[in-house]
Amino acid sequence: MEVILSHYYDIASVILFGIGFFTLLLHRNLIKKIIGLNIMDTSIFLFLASKGYIFGRVAPIVSEGATNAELYINPVPSGLVLTGIVVSVSVSAFLLALAQRLYKKYKTINLDEIIVLAKKEEE
């Protein structure tokens, strides 16, 4: 119980990762797949950001020459999260563009139906 209480960020992010992962893997609706991707990535960002935060400290913005490292949180995970967000936005945009293209062509966003239609078209 104590472990659960002290690691609730980790547990939340793992649960969210699972939800996002299975939505991305199993859902047939392309838009929901993309939502799943974003949930999955966000859960990792939650994990990283929570690991970088140290309770009772502030963001490492040095003012008035205060350079005591004891006052600040670890800024590296925040930097990683920013990079991760950029990556996540670009792949979401790419997926959305592909989904739009398929919708224009086949008038559906159900991946199974699209595969059937594409196979028919090939033959």
């Binding site: 991305l24 990792i44 792949v91 997926l95 592909l98 991946l111």
Partner: peptide, 20 residues
């Protein structure tokens, strides 16, 4: 072609699971 876009989206989805 339609088939390559479908192949791409399946490839991309699996790859993103891997990246995650």
């Amino acid at each position: 072609s339609g088939m390559t876009v479908v192949a791409t989206i399946r490839y991309l989805i699996m790859s993103l699971l891997g990246s995650g």
